[in-house]
Amino acid sequence: MVKSWLFEIFSYPYDPDPAKFDPQLCKELYDWKLDSWVAAEDLGFDGVFFSEHHFTPYSISPSPNLLVATLAQRTSRMQLGVMANITAFHNPRRLAEEGAMLDHLTGGRLEVGMGRGVDEPEFLREGVKMEETRGRFEESVALIQTAWKEPVWSYHGEYYHYDQVGIWPRPLRPELPIWVTALSPKTVSWAAQQNFKFTSVFSPTDEMRTIFEGYKKAAAEAGREAEPTEMGVCRNVFIADSEQEARDLAEPAFDNLFATFKEAAVFSDLDNVPAGYEHYQSFFRPFAGDSVSFDALVEIGAICVGTPQTVRDQIVSQVETIGCGNFLLWGSFGNLTKDQTMRSYQLYGEHVVPALQSLTV
């Protein structure tokens, strides 16, 4: 069985000038997005992952844990989580407390995602040194896990120090499922060694297979066998009733998405990235130019667009090639409307969810 998840980075799709921000349009956007997430449960999705981004219209989800708490009250079955809380932007004790609260509020449906972050403009605006993110990330995760398990604990690292403290409440489950977003081989290997689940995005399907093989190898070296259920791939997906309609609606929406993505995420100087981010020089380079080819992204599998049958076959082929047990659908992006998004989700639920549920990877 391959699980289907919604993944949400939702942009403010109107005028990007901060002086022209429209609170009413933003409120309407939140309202229909919430409606779409509630509908996803009835459509057979297994869960929803929200995202954390700051300071630009690329995303209006700076505090995704609030979205988890909100959706928990309107659903009963789906798993709910964040992919991912960026640990360098948070006090880890506070993240541990929020995770514990959310485990109670979701009735044990919480999935915890954490990442070190990669979007340079966010770190510059926050004043956090990117050279420190890996150390802060690994310390934060270790501290959070200890806080969930131990009534009273101490922690002394390079960045965080606590003596004889405890959090109230602790979670329903002492070991919450942890996900890591990863592209660099070092992070992928670390996730496997820590027995964390992980997802990846944008890379071509064949490269994804290589990334996942690296995860399995690292897990084996740590003395365990990695399962497909521990791995997920995230893709932009849009489905319509005809190939032409899907293309006509999806391509301008992608243009809108990647225009904001370039501003919010890509390094200003790809030849001189912060230490520890060298892997991302090649990853970001295609996005650094004036345009990203829609057809090229379809060709490498980063985008799945078309009729229900076309998209079903694309996704089934990808998860079989990659060997993963989770598919994350980034299906609401750019300037797609509520009706367009909801129709795409409906068609995915009718045609793709059953195909993935019956699939053995």
Results as ranks from 00 to 15, higher is better:
residue 14 Y to P: 05
residue 14 Y to G: 05
residue 15 D to T: 03
residue 15 D to H: 08
residue 15 D to F: 13
residue 16 P to A: 10
residue 17 D to W: 12
residue 18 P to R: 08
residue 19 A to P: 03
residue 19 A to V: 03
residue 19 A to N: 05
residue 20 K to Q: 14
residue 20 K to T: 07
residue 20 K to N: 15
residue 21 F to P: 00
residue 21 F to I: 10
residue 22 D to R: 07
residue 23 P to H: 09
residue 24 Q to M: 13
residue 24 Q to I: 15
residue 25 L to P: 05
residue 25 L to R: 12
residue 25 L to Y: 09
residue 26 C to W: 13
residue 27 K to W: 15
residue 27 K to A: 15
residue 27 K to M: 10
residue 27 K to D: 13
residue 28 E to L: 12
residue 30 Y to S: 05
residue 30 Y to W: 14
residue 30 Y to P: 02
residue 32 W to M: 05
residue 32 W to N: 00
residue 32 W to L: 08
residue 32 W to I: 07
residue 32 W to H: 06
residue 34 L to C: 11
residue 35 D to L: 15
residue 35 D to Q: 14
residue 36 S to P: 00
residue 37 W to G: 00
residue 37 W to T: 08
residue 37 W to F: 15
residue 38 V to D: 08
residue 38 V to T: 11
residue 38 V to H: 12
residue 38 V to L: 12
residue 38 V to C: 11
residue 39 A to F: 08
residue 40 A to K: 03
residue 41 E to T: 01
residue 42 D to T: 00
residue 43 L to C: 02
residue 43 L to K: 02
residue 43 L to I: 01
residue 43 L to N: 05
residue 43 L to V: 02
residue 44 G to W: 04
residue 44 G to F: 06
residue 44 G to D: 07
residue 45 F to C: 02
residue 45 F to T: 02
residue 45 F to L: 01
residue 45 F to G: 03
residue 45 F to I: 04
residue 45 F to Y: 08
residue 46 D to A: 10
residue 46 D to E: 15
residue 46 D to C: 01
residue 47 G to S: 04
residue 47 G to L: 12
residue 47 G to A: 07
residue 48 V to G: 07
residue 49 F to T: 04
residue 49 F to C: 01
residue 49 F to E: 02
residue 50 F to W: 15
residue 52 E to Y: 00
residue 52 E to I: 03
residue 53 H to T: 02
residue 54 H to N: 00
residue 54 H to Y: 00
residue 55 F to P: 05
residue 55 F to A: 01
residue 57 P to G: 06
residue 57 P to C: 00
residue 57 P to M: 04
residue 58 Y to E: 05
residue 59 S to N: 10
residue 60 I to T: 10
residue 60 I to D: 10
residue 61 S to Q: 13
residue 61 S to N: 09
residue 61 S to Y: 04
residue 61 S to E: 11
residue 62 P to A: 11
residue 62 P to I: 10
residue 64 P to V: 06
residue 64 P to C: 06
residue 64 P to Q: 05
residue 64 P to W: 04
residue 65 N to S: 14
residue 66 L to V: 11
residue 67 L to Y: 13
residue 67 L to T: 00
residue 68 V to S: 02
residue 69 A to C: 07
residue 70 T to W: 08
residue 73 Q to W: 07
residue 74 R to P: 02
residue 74 R to I: 05
residue 75 T to E: 09
residue 77 R to Q: 13
residue 77 R to T: 13
residue 78 M to R: 03
residue 78 M to F: 06
residue 78 M to D: 03
residue 79 Q to S: 11
residue 79 Q to H: 12
residue 80 L to E: 04
residue 81 G to C: 10
residue 81 G to M: 12
residue 81 G to T: 03
residue 81 G to E: 06
residue 82 V to D: 00
residue 82 V to K: 01
residue 82 V to T: 09
residue 83 M to I: 03
residue 83 M to R: 02
residue 83 M to C: 07
residue 84 A to S: 10
